[in-house]
Design a protein around this nucleic acid. Sequence first.
DNA 1: CTTGACCCTAAAGTACACTTTAGGGTGTAC
DNA 2: GTACACCCTAAAGTGTACTTTAGGGTCAAG
Lengths: 138, 138
Amino acid sequence: MLNIGEVARLGGVSVEAMRYYEQQGLIAPPDRNANGYRKYSPEAIRRIRFIKRAQDVGFTLKDIGDLLALKADPGASCRDVRERAQYKLVEIEEKLAVLAQMRDVLAKWTSTCPSEGQVNACPILDALDGMHDSEGET
Amino acid sequence: MLNIGEVARLGGVSVEAMRYYEQQGLIAPPDRNANGYRKYSPEAIRRIRFIKRAQDVGFTLKDIGDLLALKADPGASCRDVRERAQYKLVEIEEKLAVLAQMRDVLAKWTSTCPSEGQVNACPILDALDGMHDSEGET
DNA sequence: CTTGACCCTAAAGTACACTTTAGGGTGTAC
DNA sequence: GTACACCCTAAAGTGTACTTTAGGGTCAAG
């Protein structure tokens, strides 16, 4: 049995994050020993790492709660999990599109800026000021 | 001279956002007329649109404050503006890389999931559980 | 003369995932 | 026996860009 600090260290999170996950229902409240300390089985480390991996691919803690519920539900289907993943995939692709657009505009602007001269002749500020509108609005 | 609501409408933001920008120093406190209402010149609309365009390419309100300060400073150089833009460009490219990685992993997972069968045989949950580790960690 | 759309302020709330603070108990090594 | 690392709780704070709430004045139309 492990103390919270050990699980946190091995799981790669802070002790406070551990307590936060418990509070949010992502990890079950563990047994306590006589002094009131939380005592975890090594399985808890797997759980923490599950949460971290899910975060790494973009799931929020709420999403992760849903995934964990599906995981624990014998009546749930693999399709349910895949749906969540595909929905998240779409969200991420949307964010990618927005950022790619930002990148393109910024790249264009920085490439046309001579970097010499005063700000009153800065093409970037001119663009922000709408001096030569030409972008496709969303 | 325009009321705050007119500027907000023409600038494409809410009245509350206008007051927030003023509070944050992004727009100068305008004159008030006898009843205490803010009165703006049409220039204020340009300012709001500047802020919106800058947000659209990824600048935070704090960034935008810096840009506006450069814009108003006759001693500032175009290089200063370009530096900000290039820094932001790098930030955005970093975010893009993170999201692209998420997308790739999620796409792989969803493609290998049969969507049939019970969750106890779900390849996505297995992957999240670290069943067949093979990702390059950062 | 009242209805409704507008304006004002200050403060608190929202989402997200924690971290920090304040105050206090526990366990072990020297 | 005390120093130090560890554990506990509850509540408040962080950052971002607003929105919402509460409470109250202003103005034009009918």
